[in-house]
Design a protein around this nucleic acid. Structure first.
Lengths: 159, 159
DNA sequence: CGATCTTTTGAGACTGCATCTCAACAAGAT
DNA sequence: ATCTTGTTGAGATGCAGTCTCAAAAGATCG
């Protein structure tokens, strides 16, 4: 766990901002940094309650936003109706492959795409603060299970 | 207006699917194809009501999804809490620069990025059906108005 | 054209995620 | 220990989107 470093930074940022170090904040920090990947606010809330912590929904949402504001977490809207949060590791911004079959989310990093993005911004005089890139489709396994991916025709569900 | 061609296609698709050609569907089609850019469902509903059409929220949502299923429109989740819809022009998939200052959305196309994405999918054995790429930041004008973009520090709003 | 069958619509209830409210609480300063 | 002020919790509220079901309107056929 090299989270200690991040935690120090968190405490420091709180002090700089004149904000308080509360049990809830530390617990939330621990929870999100113990997660290996992405998690949404409701899951986080449930996980914390499951391990006996008393914390309210409002506090979870508030402090997730706080972590984001501190640059310690990232908030992304993926498919469907939810934000996903993930703790920031080493400042590397990455992008996502989202499988519509199993819901799995795989990260990837592409310096080439990043470079092209920078170029596009330059061309438009646009000052980027961040970006989100998701490639939606089927992962290896799911693609094999549904080989004949017919046109979503007929009177079947409107996805 | 080269929408006539698209409209024929829409009518044809409806028949193929055994679905009905209703006044509401045609009206919605006209509305979204008369829009030059992106629009969300609520705006669309409001716009249609404003011009005296009687149509319900449920119908708007249902038929937007239908247009998407027909490949005539695209649905994207951008920032904040809304889906944006846009009619598909010439099948060109494009990406978006989203200005947090004025809310403007500018489209761009980058074959280079598309190629890199394809490569990434290949490397992961991922079968992509689509993607969304947004670059969030400040457009030319807004960037000049807020030159000293300080760190979002202090006790100001948690964005 | 009118009867019939089936899809579609509309109004409003409902859902789920997220935010807001405000009194009670607790962290940090003195 | 006390005081000040940021923070919390419970529930209300907001909002986008979905669902329900009876009524209305396409399509089909005689």
């Amino acid at each position: 766990m090299s989270d200690a470093r991040e935690k120090q930074r968190f405490l420091q940022l709180l002090r700089e901002r004149g904000q308080r170090v509360t049990g809830e904040r530390l617990a939330l920090f621990d929870e999100i940094f113990s997660q290996h990947g992405h998690i949404d606010a409701e899951e986080l809330l449930a996980a914390m309650k499951a391990r006996g912590l008393k914390i309210s929904r409002a506090t979870v949402y508030r402090n997730l936003d706080l972590l984001v504001a501190c640059g310690l977490a990232r908030k992304q809207r993926l498919e469907r109706n939810r934000f996903l949060y993930e703790h920031v590791h080493s400042g590397q911004q990455h992008d996502h492959l989202v499988c519509t079959g199993c819901g799995r989310v795989v990260e990837f990093i592409s310096p080439g795409i990043a470079a092209l993005q920078a170029e596009i911004c330059r061309a438009h005089g646009f000052v980027a603060t961040r970006h989100t890139l998701q490639i939606i489709g089927l992962c290896n396994q799911c693609a094999q299970q549904q080989p004949a991916k017919a046109v979503p025709g007929g009177r079947t569900a409107h996805v």
